[in-house]
């Protein structure tokens, strides 16, 4: 999963590669300019993995729950990274928040994602929720509610690949891959290999659907 680090020409942060990314087989790439390259995503997840280890004193009692769709592969990657660094196995699962959303009535009923909780459950654990983009904070609020129905974790933390601002609820992330200043109407697309055939974070001027 974790590629050996190829030497690339640009810096860790602040690189704005305007070249169009390669088109993966079968998946249309949304328009937009790349704000995180595959290498930058890899480094961000590596850093998040280290930060989780630091903050939780070696990952004792930690479980990672990804929020479908793209939070789930990101959670698996972070768990894999932690395993590589420390040799500990971090339980990893997914938490679907659809039934707890506050905007259900605004759109037609949608299909549910999967909820898969590791067999030991969440009681007494440090649960790290993993999502791709933190925007209004409403998804995370729904996730906290959904988690509440599964048990009583000792604490809950939040890891996101991109924090794009514009919060509508009093929430913040504990681990952030990249803080991305955006305008409200801009659209951030996170692509991950497991779902989209490639890794990329794209920022497009908006007007599209999100």
């Amino acid at each position: 999963m974790c590629a050996l680090r190829p030497q690339t020409g640009h810096h860790d942060t602040g690189s704005h590669d305007t070249g169009s990314p390669p088109v993966p087989p079968g998946k249309p790439v949304p328009p937009g300019k790349e704000v995180l390259s595959p290498d930058e995503i890899r480094r961000a997840l590596t850093r998040i993995a280290h930060e989780i280890l630091e903050r939780t004193h070696g990952g004792e009692g930690v479980i990672l729950l990804g929020i479908p769709t793209r939070g789930v592969p990101l959670a698996r990657r972070v768990a894999g990274r932690i395993g590589e660094f420390e040799g500990v196995t971090i339980p990893c699962g997914s938490l679907d928040v659809t039934m707890h959303r506050d905007d259900l009535r605004l759109r037609p009923a949608r299909a549910l994602g999967r909820t898969e909780v590791p067999p030991d459950g969440v009681d007494g654990k440090t649960v790290v929720l993993v999502d791709d983009v933190l925007f209004s904070g409403r998804t995370v609020r729904a996730a906290l509610d959904a988690l509440n129905d599964l048990g009583r974790p000792r604490s809950v933390q939040l890891a996101v690949l991109v924090d794009r601002g514009h919060r509508e609820l009093p929430l913040r992330a504990d681990y952030v891959g990249k803080n991305l200043p955006t305008a409200q109407r801009e659209v951030v697309h996170v692509l991950v290999t497991e779902v989209d055939g490639q890794d990329s974070v794209l920022l497009s001027p908006g007007g599209g659907s999100r």
Binding site: M99, H100, L112, G113, D149, L150, G151
Partner: peptide, 18 residues
């Protein structure tokens, strides 16, 4: 959808706020 909801019956709180 039913396959996903089947998991709810196994949870301590068998209720969704939807």
């Amino acid at each position: 959808t039913a396959a996903e909801l089947a998991g709810v019956a196994a949870r301590p709180i068998k209720k969704l706020p939807t």
